[in-house]
Amino acid sequence: MPLARLAARLAAAIGAQPARQELKWMKQARAADPTLPALPAMLTRRVAGEPLAYILGAQPFGPLTLRARAPVLIPRPETEDWALRLAHTLAPSPGMPARRILDLCTGSACIPLLLCALWPPGTARALAVDVAPAALALAADNARLTHTPTLAENPAANTLDVLHGDLRHPGALARALRAHGPFDVLTANPPYLSKADWAHLDPSIAALHEDPAALRGDDDDGLGLYRRIAELVALPGVLAPGGADVALEVGWTQAAAVRDMLARAAGFARVEVWADPWGRERVVVGRRRA
């Protein structure tokens, strides 16, 4: 199909202005990296509904450029926004002892890698956990890409290690975490689409290039994995005895329910809800005891 018709079909699908921009980004990416597919091939895939990040193989996240690879969840701008805010809110001073960070359902590892990139050297020691091998492989690739070593490679730097683990079994996961914890910071962007959401998917995700398991939450209300997190953090040895900061991304209608779960689960000084830049309640944040 000729380029102009492909471009017109993309414009019809996503709007004229976004299509013009995506076309420009494809051209720029291809000019910078000739190993990418040629423009007509990229456009054909895009028109078929494949996300731009998979086609370009990259997704910006704060100051980082991470690798994006199907079917691992592509980092969203909402996540970028709150992760940046969290990094600034919790930022340690240089020379402070390393904080242990646990990121559950890590996917591309965008959240812990951002903390590692923004915090002073030696203050972040992150463990990225996922159940999907594809996610763990991508997380490790992104750590290399952003020059984040493992703890064994360089204990003086900010480090990231990956661990296979299944949140659906909190007891077993807690045991596996024992060698790495207890944790001062817990972050997670677990799959949270409800059964009702699943029946009416937005066209931008409906082609399901992303792993459905990274989108669809457990239980009918999509909150199953938050329940497992609440169970996990209540187990001894997971969170630091002095208290920990917890930040969980939620779907736009789920903040209140997750806030209640978190408030009941562990002794937080306070539990906050942060809005995203589009005005949606996006993340539930439990702050450590004072």
Partner: peptide
Amino acid sequence: RIEVMRARGAGGQHVNKTES
């Protein structure tokens, strides 16, 4: 005042559009 420019509906995992 820092604003984002387009509405995103439910946002988050529910959509996958570049909103930069």
